[in-house]
Nucleic acid binder design. Structure first.
Lengths: 140, 140
DNA sequence: CGGCTATGTTGTAGTCGGCAACCAGTTGGC
DNA sequence: GCCAACTGGTTGCCGACTACAACATAGCCG
């Protein structure tokens, strides 16, 4: 097996291992916000508002799934919807103040856990891992 | 926010996004085998047989969940059970020939998909990503 | 033997996800 | 202008996965 194939094996095994543990750890880290809702709120904040179709595309989820999650987010008061003035079919989703506060809190808890995990990493290595993951994510 | 914190934000977001997409991709790659069953079959093969309790501990799943998954694996003919001769409470689980063949095929398909995804990556970058992921996984 | 622990199974319920059918708004060809 | 095709979103329905609790069975130790 070539070095390339060995790297591929390692990468797929590690990413799969991560996927297996993600939900378990997520519920431990911030029990008040499901992983899905957290991720969606995070993307809404990152992009400063987007449509449900964008969420569905980004997370590779069915639009019905996104529709229900968005409905719950709105009912919990963490996100608000307004009709897109440029296209009345769509809705612009934005996090509310409560949503932003919850997100900040959850982020801080998660950041603390990650900080501990990366205690012995150099700044350069962390930046490079982040860069690789973005590059990998973009190829999906 | 420091560069370190920014890296942590990116890493956690990308890894979470990966987890969300993992199941989706897994079902596309080998529809006949769920990600959980694949992982279990993989561990059974790697360890050359183990008990349901070991699977539960490794995947951080409830024993009832494992029990049902194992039952399905057996009904599909991909795994076999036998009472542990040393402890009649437990069962030794082993992949069948069909299970091994399915695992080989799924592995090959996955490897091919990853190969395509990394087509424009240099050997060095792939090796470094693999190294980072292993290092990250070890800290879990 | 009698309590305690460990291994699995089953019942129940909740969450997440996809598919299909549907409605509403937009776009493009005629 | 008008109808067809497409897009964004909602809802009904169902299957997959998971946890928790209750239970049966088998070993362990006093």
């Amino acid at each position: 097996m070539s070095g390339r194939d060995a790297s591929i094996e390692t990468i797929q095994r590690e990413l799969t291992a991560f996927a297996r543990r993600a939900r378990h750890k997520a519920s431990q880290l911030h029990p008040e916000l499901s992983l899905v809702m957290y991720s969606m709120l995070d993307l809404l904040t990152e992009r400063g508002g987007c449509r449900a179709a964008d969420l569905a595309a980004y997370f590779m989820l069915d639009k019905s799934t996104v529709s229900r999650q968005v409905r719950d987010l709105e009912q919990l008061g963490y996100a608000a919807r307004e009709v897109d003035p440029e296209d009345h079919r769509g809705q612009i989703l934005r996090p509310t103040e409560a949503g932003l506060a919850l997100l900040r809190e959850a982020n801080e808890m998660r950041r603390a856990a990650f900080t501990e995990r990366f205690a012995d990493w150099s700044d350069q290595d962390m930046a490079k891992l982040a860069e690789y993951l973005v590059r990998y994510g973009e190829s999906e």
